[in-house]
């Protein structure tokens, strides 16, 4: 098993840990229906880094993200955002933590159909009752290329544009970390590539930290680092990934899956 600390990070001079899992386990059900989704996983995500989590279906990649993002509870071990231990927080504090320190991009249904693009983008700040930083907001909107479409409702936007609104929403509140769950899953390849470009750019230019769950090797190739999960464990890690290298790694899972 490799450890993040063993690899010096070129793009994160501060090196501070944005999120960390230590011996994290997640078990569903009891008795015969007991399923271990995560089996004492330890991993760190550094500031200003774009990490992709990959693995076959049922490998626990989404569960890992949900536990780290405070969307799901942990069975044992520890999940931290910055230096806050999530297991010690109640529902109210977790909600506040998600609101103030985490951004989300989901596969679909990211937006409220009743709100305009701009209203959707500022929603987390509206919930917190904060005024958005105008300059920052303009920059984010520019970065994702939505300037002309802010007054549109989601139904008037294409799928790619909708996901860009979701990314802008995640960026606008300047969270410590953004979790993206299959953000390109519902997009055609061109829109997907565009969106991944924006995510990459936000890490480069805006120094965001992004953790993305995906099963698409091309998507993973936009990340600085790829973590591979299988059967609830971290089985490998790759720096500066290319699509081909990731695909090769994934094929090994498939082969294993077929033979076992």
């Amino acid at each position: 098993m490799s450890h993040a600390a063993a690899f010096p990070l070129a793009q994160a001079p501060t090196g501070a840990v944005a999120a960390r899992a230590t011996d994290l386990s997640k078990v569903y059900g009891q008795g015969e229906t007991r399923v271990t989704a995560l089996d004492s996983v330890s991993v760190e995500f550094r500031r200003g880094e774009f990490t992709a989590i990959m693995g076959p279906s049922g490998s626990g990649k989404s569960t890992l993200m949900h536990c780290l993002a405070g969307l799901d509870s942990v069975s044992s071990g520890s999940a931290r955002i910055g230096d806050v231990e999530l297991a010690s927080l109640g529902d109210r504090q977790l909600t506040r933590l998600r609101r103030d320190r985490i951004g989300f991009v989901f596969q679909a249904f990211n937006l409220l159909p009743t709100l305009t693009a701009l209203e959707n983008i500022t929603l987390p700040m509206d919930i917190a009752g904060r005024k958005p930083d105008k300059q920052w907001l303009d920059m984010v909107v520019d970065t994702v290329g939505l300037s002309g479409r802010l007054a549109h409702r989601p139904s008037q936007l294409s799928g790619g544009q909708q996901q860009r609104v979701a990314v802008a929403r995640a960026l606008a509140a300047r969270p410590e970390i953004i979790f993206a769950d299959e953000p390109t899953g519902n997009l055609d390849s061109r829109s997907g590539a565009e969106l991944l470009g924006f995510l990459h750019e936000s890490v480069r230019a805006l120094r965001q930290t992004i953790v993305m769950v995906t099963h698409d090797p091309v998507a993973a190739s936009y990340a600085d680092r790829v973590i591979f999960l299988a059967d609830g464990r971290i089985v490998d890690e790759m720096r500066e990934p290319t699509a081909d290298a990731v695909l090769d790694r994934m094929k090994r899972f498939d082969a294993k899956g077929r033979t076992s």
């Binding site: 993002a69 969307l71 529902d91 109210r92 909600t95 506040r96 998600r98 609101r99 103030d100 985490i102 951004g103 989300f104 989901f106 249904f109 990211n110 409220l112 159909p113 929603l123 987390p124 919930i127 917190a128 929403r169």
Partner: peptide, 13 residues
């Protein structure tokens, strides 16, 4: 789904 999303991005119960 909307309610789930709102909760995830930080709307309290």
């Amino acid at each position: 789904r909307e309610i789930g999303m709102l909760r995830a991005i930080g709307l309290a119960r």
